[in-house]
Design a protein around this nucleic acid. Structure first.
Lengths: 191, 191
DNA sequence: CGCGACGTTGATTTGCCTCAACGATTGTGG
DNA sequence: CCACAATCGTTGAGGCAAATCAACGTCGCG
């Protein structure tokens, strides 16, 4: 049950049994079925979420009813709305499941407690956010410097497993283009 | 000299005199003149950098010789290449000064030392990266969901002080559009 | 002064969007 | 288990936002 998250954390910090046991005592496991929401716009996000299995997405719903996918999260990834989590303000985003999924949640007060008792977790999340920051910078560079086609091929080679399992129009949304356009550019130069 | 950085850090963690004194002992102050490089493509980035005064930018130079601005950093901001800093690999980016500037540097080994001796800094940078992550997500959303004009007005209202001090074509680069296009859309609907 | 950096404007092209229709597949309720 | 609806991807025609290419004016600085 907690093997995967243990391994995930051990990528950046080494925990002993006691520390890990304490960590686990703060966790809550949740199953989410396809299309169910983990977070809805207007709610305050109170958790960090680790994906044990399945696939989720975070998206923004604009005034014209269009969805814009901010991120995907498959097995072994973290997902949450850091904006709402940090500020305590209502989230502008939705998080829902693209497949039946199992997630592990830690809520904000537990996490603060954890930071106090096991400062290594401060380090873990520092490194995790630093790495995520790097990934987002790369995505921004792609957005401001590349064509839709280049971004798509970039995406496929960076995240082949996501390209495999999510519908094509969701990938289009993530790339900031229309489904029709993605369809067309794939025909011209298949992956 | 170190008042500003002290205030910046105190936004997230409280330091006593001893801790701050130790921190300062690890710092190096550097003046950078306009157009000088703080980091060049191919170098390994060994520092975190705090801008005490002036203005810097981080950019990518593509194969066709085009610059793409990843971020600006004015007084009281941090700038670095986290990718190279984290991985120890050569940076794909440049960092240079848009004005004569004064920066405060802490190098990687000193920072690791600092994390060991004063774990509060782990917390400080955790929160700093978490906040930056939020800002980058917002920029990505803008890039995938808004028109050039919307992104521009968004930028002006978010960073009025940057809009004031950097040349217009640099703002265009940051927004992912051409200088001519920015000029035109400003004429149609002035800020 | 003269040159380079910067912003503007015009003419044209193009990449992606919009709107619309249609087939294939999936899933679901009767 | 079939019928029907919903979801998803594709294709076509036409439109528009932004890019491209080119020229030019202004400013500030060496």
């Amino acid at each position: 049950m907690f093997d995967l998250i243990r391994k995930n954390i051990s990528k950046h910090v080494k925990l002993n049994e006691e520390e890990f046991t304490f960590f686990v005592s703060l966790l809550r496991v949740k199953k989410i079925r396809k299309k169910q929401f983990l977070l809805e716009e207007g709610e305050v996000c109170q958790f960090e979420c680790f994906v044990n299995s399945g696939c989720l997405r975070q998206f923004y719903l604009d005034d014209s009813g269009q969805e814009h996918i901010i991120q995907f999260a498959v097995t072994d990834w973290w997902i949450s709305d850091q904006y709402s989590f940090l500020t305590g303000l209502p989230s502008p985003y939705f998080i829902d499941a693209l497949e039946n999924s199992e997630v592990i949640l830690i809520n904000k007060t537990s996490l603060e407690d954890l930071y106090q008792k096991v400062p290594k977790f401060e380090r873990f999340f520092r490194i995790a956010f630093q790495s995520s920051y790097v990934a987002l910078q790369k995505r921004i560079l792609a957005n401001i410097s590349q064509t839709a086609e280049e971004r798509y091929h970039n995406f496929v080679s960076t995240y082949p497993e996501i390209e495999q399992r999510v519908p094509q129009h969701q990938v289009a949304s993530y790339l900031g283009i229309k489904p029709e356009s993605l369809s067309r550019l794939k025909k011209q130069r298949p992956a």
